[in-house]
Amino acid sequence: MRPLTIFYIIVFYVIAQLFWWATLLIAFNPIRKWMIVGEGVVFLSLMAFGAYTLHKAFNREKKMNDQKKNFLLSVTHELKSPLASIKLYLQTIIKRDLDVETQRNFIRKSLLDIERLDDMVENMLLASKIENNSYSFPKESFNFSDLVEKVVGRLQIHVCSKDALVTHIQPDIYVTGDKFSLGAVVTNLIENAVKYSSGCDPIHVSVEKIESGKVSFKVADLGMGIPDEEKPKVFNRFYRVGSEETRKTKGTGLGLFIVKQVLDYHQAQIKVKDNKPKGTIFEVLLG
């Protein structure tokens, strides 16, 4: 039997006993009737509030457990797919007499899958360290424009054409912060846009200094978009937008969680806006 069911059976039993004893006390001492009723109302109010709070806690815990299960299933799939691909490429190279160019092509594709695995492992390690407060976020001044250019160049191979990632990056914009974790922010936001874009729709990546003196980093896609009611939730750990179309897309639900945690540490802002005619814009403002 579920713990919540047992709890409500106990609550029902306590309330029934309360009414029973209240009836007996009133019958025994009618003069104190309203005092007994008042104390009973207070007790019932506290009992109702406690039951409601516990019910919410149980539901929250159940939701978190369901998200963890989905996360484990997603991670298993994310690991299995590139590993199977790498294994197939290597077995083909060993078993068949391939020309040098084909071998190099298979090795390049294997390296892409390894890079994908490496990104996922780094995300999980960073999320774990942030949650355990064991990541120190070492600060330094570095060329943010150069960092974004390098991430775009590395992720260019994951899109359908060289024109799919469109950049508008002002050169030599420097920020002070943790280069590794801010690199994870850039990678996760661009990968997120690639993941939820369809076909060869362009993804616009920009870096510029705005009038306030802050550095603006934007990633704009023409994907499925995010409903307004879902926007505040997308940065929660393990959370994925609830549409069936989104659930079929690969992902662990950690990317945007890491983005928000890293930016909060850097006292930076992130805004989620609708793109026109469709899609989403993520804008990061670094001080």
Rank of each mutant, 00 (worst) to 15 (best):
residue 237 R to H: 10
residue 44 L to S: 05
residue 104 R to L: 13
residue 119 D to F: 12
residue 59 N to G: 09
residue 93 I to P: 10
residue 236 N to Y: 05
residue 113 D to W: 01
residue 155 L to Q: 10
residue 197 S to L: 02
residue 55 H to R: 11
residue 275 N to T: 01
residue 116 R to I: 00
residue 225 G to Y: 03
residue 94 I to Q: 15
residue 45 S to F: 10
residue 283 E to T: 11
residue 158 H to N: 13
residue 132 N to R: 13
residue 93 I to F: 11
residue 192 N to K: 06
residue 91 Q to L: 12
residue 166 V to W: 08
residue 69 K to C: 04
residue 248 K to Q: 14
residue 266 H to N: 06
residue 264 D to M: 10
residue 241 V to N: 12
residue 286 L to Y: 04
residue 242 G to T: 03
residue 235 F to Q: 01
residue 159 V to P: 09
residue 145 S to A: 02
residue 169 I to P: 05
residue 258 I to P: 07
residue 101 E to T: 08
residue 94 I to R: 15
residue 127 A to K: 07
residue 129 K to G: 01
residue 58 F to Q: 00
residue 1 M to A: 09
residue 249 T to C: 13
residue 44 L to C: 06
residue 160 C to P: 04
residue 195 K to H: 04
residue 23 T to S: 13
residue 88 L to A: 11
residue 122 E to C: 05
residue 65 N to D: 08
residue 8 Y to C: 05
residue 81 S to T: 14
residue 10 I to T: 12
residue 199 G to H: 03
residue 23 T to I: 03
residue 229 E to Y: 07
residue 278 K to W: 04
residue 11 V to G: 00
residue 84 A to P: 02
residue 166 V to D: 11
residue 243 S to Q: 05
residue 57 A to M: 12
residue 218 K to A: 14
residue 45 S to M: 12
residue 56 K to Y: 03
residue 229 E to S: 10
residue 174 Y to D: 10
residue 271 K to S: 13
residue 128 S to E: 14
residue 28 F to A: 15
residue 152 V to I: 06
residue 90 L to S: 13
residue 282 F to K: 04
residue 53 T to S: 15
residue 269 Q to P: 04
residue 212 S to I: 00
residue 74 S to D: 05
residue 183 G to M: 02
residue 139 K to H: 09
residue 130 I to D: 02
residue 255 G to K: 06
residue 143 N to M: 12
residue 284 V to C: 07
residue 221 D to T: 01
residue 69 K to V: 08
residue 15 I to G: 02
residue 37 V to S: 07
residue 144 F to R: 02
residue 149 E to H: 10
residue 241 V to E: 15
residue 6 I to S: 14
residue 95 K to I: 05
residue 67 Q to M: 14
residue 171 P to N: 08
residue 201 D to N: 13
residue 139 K to V: 06
residue 58 F to P: 00
residue 72 L to G: 03
residue 2 R to S: 10
residue 32 R to K: 15
residue 20 W to G: 07
residue 38 G to W: 02
residue 262 V to K: 03
residue 141 S to A: 07
residue 155 L to V: 02
residue 114 I to R: 03
residue 204 H to R: 13
residue 82 P to M: 01
residue 20 W to T: 08
residue 49 F to N: 13
residue 121 V to L: 15
residue 283 E to L: 01
residue 180 F to A: 07
residue 153 G to F: 03
residue 210 I to T: 08
residue 4 L to Y: 09
residue 195 K to P: 02
residue 271 K to T: 12
residue 188 N to A: 09
residue 172 D to C: 10
residue 265 Y to W: 09
residue 26 I to M: 04
residue 164 A to L: 05
residue 108 R to A: 10
residue 18 L to I: 00
residue 193 A to N: 01
